[in-house]
C-alpha cells in the first residue's frame, strides 16, 4: 500500500447555516491521481479552499504526511508543497507568461534588497535562471507554449491560459497538485488535449499526487485512478471509476441535477 500523503478527517466547512462540506473523510496516496466529482455546488471547490487555507474549516482536520496542518495559511500551504489552479482562472492577465510562472516559483526566489535592487548583475543571473526553468517547463509540458513565454496572458487562448495556470502550479515542483475543473470554458477537444498533457506529465513524475476536480463524470475516466464523489458536501461514493459510475446514489445525484 502506498503511503497516504494527504488525509482529512471529518472536515466541515460552513457558510452561515450551510454546510458546504460536511464531515469529509478523505485520503490521497503518493503518486495517486484522484478525480473529485460531484454536481454543481456539491462542495468540490470548497474542499480545495479548505485545504489551501483560503477557508477555515469549522471542524475536522487536515493531515499532510501525518502532520496536522488544519487552518494553515495559503502561504504555509504553498510552503508545504501543495499548489493549485482555480476554476475561474486566476492568472495575472496583464503580466507575461514568464512573470506568471515566476510568481509560481516564489520559494526559489531571492528577495534580498541588495540582490534585487542594487546588485543587478546578480539579479540578471537569477532572472536568467528562472527564465530557463520556465521555458524548460513549458517545453516539457506543451512544446508550443514555449514560444509564448514573453507574451501577456491577455493575448493567449483559453486553453493556453489553462496550461499556463497548470504550469504555474507545477514550476515549484509540488508534492500535491490540486486542479479545479480545468475543463471549464473549454471545448471537449481542448479538454482532451490538456488531459493528455497531464497524463504525459504524470508519467514523468510518478510521485506527484494530484486531485482533479471535474463535474462531467466521463472526462475523469481516462486520467484518474480512483474517484471520490461529493454531493451536498458529503462523500457519497468512492472507488474505481467504473464502480462509482454505476453506483445508484451517484446516478441519482447526477440525474437529479441535470
Amino acid at each position: 500500500m502506498r503511503p497516504a500523503v494527504l488525509k482529512t478527517e471529518d472536515l466541515t466547512v460552513k457558510f452561515g447555516g450551510l454546510k458546504a462540506l460536511n464531515g469529509l473523510d478523505f485520503e490521497l496516496c503518493e503518486g495517486q491521481f484522484l478525480g473529485l466529482i460531484g454536481p454543481n455546488g456539491s462542495g468540490k471547490t470548497t474542499f480545495f479552499n479548505a485545504l489551501t487555507g483560503i477557508y477555515r474549516p469549522a471542524s475536522g482536520n487536515v493531515f499532510l504526511h501525518g502532520k496536522d496542518i488544519t487552518g494553515a495559511s495559503p502561504n504555509k500551504v504553498y510552503g508545504y508543497g501543495i499548489t493549485r489552479t482555480f476554476q475561474r482562472l486566476r492568472l495575472a492577465t496583464s503580466l507575461s507568461v514568464l512573470d506568471n510562472l515566476i510568481i509560481g516559483n516564489q520559494r526559489n526566489l531571492n528577495f534580498g534588497i541588495w540582490q534585487n535592487i542594487f546588485d543587478r548583475k546578480y539579479f540578471k543571473s537569477q532572472l536568467k535562471e528562472q527564465t530557463e526553468i520556465a521555458e524548460d517547463l513549458l517545453r516539457r509540458f506543451s512544446p508550443d507554449l514555449a514560444a509564448l513565454l514573453l507574451k501577456p496572458i491577455s493575448s493567449l487562448s483559453m486553453i493556453d491560459r489553462r496550461r499556463v495556470e497548470v504550469c504555474r502550479a507545477l514550476i515549484s515542483e509540488p508534492k500535491i497538485l490540486l486542479l479545479d475543473e480545468p475543463s471549464a470554458g473549454m471545448t471537449p477537444d481542448e479538454t482532451r488535449a490538456l488531459m493528455d498533457e497531464l497524463q504525459g506529465w504524470r508519467a514523468q513524475h510518478p510521485t506527484l499526487s494530484t486531485i482533479l476536480i471535474e463535474h462531467e463524470m466521463e472526462l475523469i475516466n481516462k486520467v484518474s485512478d480512483t474517484c471520490v464523489v461529493l454531493n451536498y458536501g458529503e462523500k457519497i461514493a468512492e472507488g474505481r471509476y467504473s464502480d462509482v459510475s454505476n453506483n445508484p446514489s451517484v446516478r441519482a445525484a447526477y440525474l437529479g441535477e441535470d
Partner: peptide
C-alpha cells in the same frame, strides 16, 4: 492583481 492567487503561491 489578485491577492488570493498570490497567497496561494506563497
Amino acid at each position: 492583481l489578485d491577492e488570493v492567487a498570490s497567497a496561494s503561491f506563497g
